[in-house]
């Protein structure tokens, strides 16, 4: 089975953000980056499917050169090869544009299954995987919590999470796209051997200019302003030493909120 895993690099979870001077993005220079949370899970799921059914797992990323680090991490976890569509200037600034680029590269690939994350932790669009499926003309299922592949029958069963603890199995022909939800399984660590091997694995860079795409026909969705949210109802922040804040809290819970 040939599996493609879409992997995005995002700012680390504990990042403290500053706005970029143009006001349409964040300052990236002081941030560290890591693999998007649900993409780690989708990679794990790809590797498990590869182990179960044999075949190949390839990582596909749109990003800056620095994203090679995350792709190498994925290779160290066990993926066979990586592809980076290099967008050094962040020109592909909408999920639709990213999906078009991913689709363009995948037209030259054979695959049975594409796994993407449910949503990215930076821009949080929850769009890319589904856009990609439609652009490739293949079916999809979103927010998947379990996969049962049957390569002989060219079928895959996916357990879709729904709201409030409901689930639903769906059956799809392959090739298809599944978007993976965090928590689908426990993510493995890269072994030392894996890290050594990763250095020798293929990591192909594709330049944006190599893609045969008419960008003017891709719908344009533009972020015109990024800012810290104004909120009308903010918590009353209790200040002081641990003892005094705890004392204040207990008083407030008793006398003001009357919940103790």
């Amino acid at each position: 089975m040939k599996i493609i895993t879409c992997l995005k690099e995002v700012p680390a979870r504990d990042a403290r953000y500053q706005l970029a001077s143009e006001g349409t993005g964040i300052k990236e220079s002081d941030l560290t980056f890591e693999i998007n949370e649900c993409d780690e899970y989708s990679l794990e799921e790809s590797l498990k499917l590869g182990e179960e059914h044999g075949g190949e797992v390839a990582i596909l990323t749109v990003g800056r050169r620095r994203a090679e680090k995350s792709i190498r991490k994925g290779l160290a976890m066990g993926a066979d090869r990586g592809m980076l569509i290099r967008d050094e200037e962040g020109q592909l600034n909408s999920p639709h544009a990213v999906a078009v680029a991913l689709a363009e590269v995948l037209k030259g690939e054979e695959f049975d299954l594409i796994l993407a994350g449910t949503q990215s932790d930076d821009w949080s669009y929850a769009q890319t995987g589904v856009l990609l499926a439609e652009l490739l003309g293949i079916p999809h299922a979103t927010i998947v919590m379990e996969i049962q592949a049957d390569p002989a029958q060219k079928k895959v069963k996916a357990l879709r999470e729904m709201e409030s603890g409901w689930f639903q199995w769906v059956e799809l022909p392959m090739p298809s796209v599944l978007t993976i939800q965090a928590g689908i399984s426990q993510v493995r660590y890269a072994s030392l051997k894996g890290i050594m091997q990763a250095k020798k694995k293929e990591l192909r860079t594709i330049e944006l200019s190599d893609l045969d795409v008419d960008w003017s026909s891709v719908p344009q969705v533009e972020v015109v302003r990024v800012y810290f949210p104004e909120v009308d109802k903010k918590a009353e922040i209790l200040e002081g030493t641990t003892e005094t804040v705890v004392e204040q809290l207990v008083e407030k819970l008793k006398k003001e909120a009357k919940v103790l």
């Binding site: 669009y125 979103t142 026909s217 891709v218």
Partner: peptide, 22 residues
């Protein structure tokens, strides 16, 4: 909602129109 997370991007790609989510 989950159903539209499943549907809206597909629709946007099918008719090639702009989509803003959430």
């Amino acid at each position: 909602i989950y159903q539209n997370i499943d549907l809206a991007p597909k629709l946007a790609a099918a008719i090639n129109k702009g989509l803003v989510t959430d």
